[in-house]
Write a protein that binds this DNA or RNA. Structure first.
Lengths: 185, 185
DNA sequence: TATACCATGTAACAAGTTACATGATTTA
DNA sequence: TAAATCATGTAACTTGTTACATGGTATA
């Protein structure tokens, strides 16, 4: 039950059409809550039906016509309620770790390469975050309103730092391990 | 498409019944791939139907009777194929970060408490992992077969270390921020 | 006037969640 | 023998994914 709230947040930051939201879910909010355009349109329909948002009255709702939405008071209230409510952290779900565990049984063939590929991807993501930090949060002048945004960005940076560190360590280990053969226990 | 492979891995490590698997998915494998008993029974049914696993012939398949499964060659082959195949890392999805972003718009009421609660939970998880490390991987004598298991555990430790660090930092920030009021932009 | 792209959708499916049902075994 | 618990399931629902459809607008 997070996608509607992600959309409400995005729309409060800036009223948008479905496609504009889709674009924003490819970066920005999408860095920690991604969604496809199909999900977004389905959810926009629901939110409009329940009275949380409405289409701005400018354009008529024809197919292929841009429709821009804004948040109604009910939507804002629901978002505030959800934000304040306590939630448990979701348990980790990571395929790469699962594959390593499987590799201990069926052999490590192919995984080393993929570790290197992941390391590269995480390095790129880290670089992207650091660029954003330099651009949007130059040292010394954090406006208090930006503190929360910066905090979120730092989570991203720290997380990618963890991954690059761990993957580097993992690759070192791999060079020391008996290697590719099927360690069929 | 990871649950079947998680189950195959668990069954290769040790043939088990549905409930035994459910227990193991609450710890061990469950630390990075959790599943409920409903998911597990459904998946066991599929895996058996497609010939990847079979019930050990000891007990007859009555309801409420323990049924223990083992992996067939087809299942092992499929697991090896999946393990070797390259996969993209899944984009991050985190509710807490989303809530912080929402809080920048609708106010930070209630979030501070939950940050503290999460910090506590992550500290406990970290302590649990470190206990396992001391027990199962005492320094100095890593058998090469255990290296992969240890690597996975270390990912868990590093990840929880990241969370506790970031949450501590976040709480410090929160004490400096204008506080609970609705920063309604 | 084709062709590409913009914008909004539909449909079918897969995976995960929540609530409940039922038979067998232990134990009070 | 009643209650609790073990063990295996069913059903309904929500969320996320993949593939495709359709109308409008720009441009070669």
């Amino acid at each position: 039950m997070s996608l509607p709230h992600a959309i409400l947040t995005a729309l409060l930051e800036k009223p948008s059409s479905g496609l504009e939201l889709t674009r924003r879910f490819d970066k920005s909010i999408g860095y920690f809550w991604s969604a496809t355009h199909q999900q977004i349109y389905r959810e926009l329909g629901r939110l409009e039906a329940e009275g949380s948002i409405r289409a701005l009255a400018s354009q008529q709702p024809a197919r292929g016509q841009k429709k821009r939405y804004e948040v109604l008071p009910a939507g804002r209230a629901e978002l505030a309620r959800w934000t304040a409510a306590s939630q448990d952290p979701k348990p980790l779900r990571d395929t790469l770790l699962l594959r390593l565990r499987a590799a201990a049984v069926v052999g490590t063939a192919g995984i080393g390469e993929d570790l290197r590929r992941h390391l590269d991807l995480h390095r790129r993501q880290l670089a992207e975050y650091e660029e954003i930090q330099e651009r949007d949060f130059p040292p010394g002048k954090d406006a208090p309103a930006d503190r929360l945004q910066h905090l979120v960005l730092r989570a991203g940076i720290d997380l990618e730092t963890f991954w690059t560190g761990w993957l580097t360590h993992a690759l070192e280990e791999f060079e020391r391990i008996p290697a590719e053969g099927s360690t069929t226990l």
